[in-house]
């Protein structure tokens, strides 16, 4: 009778408690052992910390824009121009832009990891995502810092007179 199949390969994958090969660690364990970093740890932490900051930033933003003063009816070009003349709102909006973009991009990265089945698909979706995010962050940052309400010489805004 043939002897029952042994799994020598499998046994050697796990370093048995007293085997001399223990220090070698295990072969199959922790796939991707090389190049181990804390990237996923920091990414996880970042989602929670940026989420907390976004609660304050976004709710503050909505409150100031939609509730204070004339409320939503006062929202126009002049209102935005007025806000961005103030460094506080420049920093506020800059933080909101960067945190929301990094948070949203990292969230979508997770979703791509979830749903993309082929390595190729995953690679191209991430490439598209990162490109799009960089464009938005760079353009947004540029606008916040170089915004000039009086670019139009015929502007009737009070700040431009």
């Amino acid at each position: 009778m043939p002897s029952p199949p042994h799994h020598p390969g499998r046994m050697s994958e796990i370093a048995a408690p007293r085997s001399s090969s223990r220090s070698r660690n295990l072969k199959g364990g922790g796939r991707n052992r090389s190049g181990q970093t804390n990237f996923e740890l920091y990414s996880w932490l970042f989602m929670r910390l940026s989420g907390l900051a976004l609660v304050v930033l976004v709710l503050g933003h909505l409150f100031v824009n939609l509730m204070l003063g004339g409320g939503i009816t006062a929202l126009d070009f002049a209102f935005v121009a007025g806000k961005w003349a103030n460094p506080l709102w420049q920093v506020w909006d800059l933080l909101m832009l960067w945190l929301a973009m990094l948070h949203g991009t990292n969230g979508l990265r997770t979703i791509i990891n979830d749903y993309a089945e082929k390595d190729q698909t995953r690679f191209w979706l991430k490439a598209l995502l990162i490109t799009a995010s960089i464009v938005v962050v760079v353009l947004g940052t540029l606008v916040i810092f170089t915004f000039d309400p009086c670019l139009d010489p015929s502007s009737t805004l009070s700040v431009c007179k």
């Binding site: 922790g30 796939r31 740890l41």
Partner: peptide, 15 residues
């Protein structure tokens, strides 16, 4: 330490 490192993997607890 070893076990924590294994679970710190891309496919570990952070998933």
């Amino acid at each position: 330490e070893q076990r924590l490192e294994i679970l710190n993997d891309k496919e570990g607890v952070w998933r």
